[in-house]
Simulated assay, not measured.
Amino acid sequence: MTANRVELQRIMASLQSSGLTVEAVEDGALIQHGESRVALFAENDPQGGVIVRLHLDLELYVEEDSLPDILMGMNLMNQGLDYGALNLDPVEPEEVDPDEEAPLLFAVLGRSVLWLRDLSAGELERLTEHLRRFEAEVTGAVESTLHGPKGISA
């Protein structure tokens, strides 16, 4: 069940007024924050309030044979994240050649969920702050791991 379109419009307007670039997409919004683009989806909580889901595509891809090392590294990074978590999503191959077996590929995504009691100014401000911290925390953790002294290899 998706949130009422009016509620999503209120969330988008609030984010725009806080200085973020917001674009409507099919069933949610795309928020531009610096170099990052965070997808936002909202749905009504049957018990009241609104559940907001944030997805950050990090444009990192992992092949199946690297999964054990990557999963261990992601688990360690997730322990230090307060506003989100790193997840793997399988990537559908664009072109499938029936004669060749393509390796399974996974995208590394940042994800976060926030429950808003209502769409009051205070709750919308909390969402804006959560969004900023989520994006900064996830990209910072990945960048420091990739470019740090020990780095990870995928």
Rank of each mutant, 00 (worst) to 15 (best):
S18L: 03
S18W: 00
S18D: 09
G19L: 07
G19V: 07
G19Y: 08
L20V: 05
V22N: 11
V22R: 09
E23M: 11
A24Y: 07
V25M: 14
E26I: 08
L30R: 13
I31E: 02
G34S: 06
G34N: 08
E35D: 15
S36L: 08
S36Y: 08
R37W: 00
A39Y: 14
A39D: 11
A39V: 14
A42D: 06
N44S: 15
P46H: 06
G49R: 05
G49E: 05
I51N: 00
V52R: 01
R53H: 07
R53P: 05
R53Q: 01
H55Y: 09
H55F: 10
D57H: 10
L58T: 10
E59P: 06
E59Q: 14
L60G: 06
L60I: 14
Y61P: 05
V62A: 01
E63L: 09
E64D: 10
S66M: 11
L67N: 04
I70D: 01
I70N: 03
I70W: 04
I70L: 07
G73L: 12
M74L: 15
N75G: 03
L76W: 03
M77T: 03
M77D: 04
G80N: 11
D82A: 13
Y83C: 09
L86P: 01
L86Y: 04
N87C: 08
D89G: 01
P90V: 13
E92D: 14
P93Q: 12
P93S: 12
E94I: 14
V96M: 10
P98L: 03
E100S: 04
E100R: 05
E100L: 09
E101L: 10
A102S: 14
L104V: 00
L105G: 05
V108Q: 00
G110P: 03
R111V: 12
R111N: 09
L114F: 08
L114T: 09
L114W: 06
W115C: 06
W115G: 06
R117K: 03
R117N: 04
R117S: 06
R117L: 05
D118C: 15
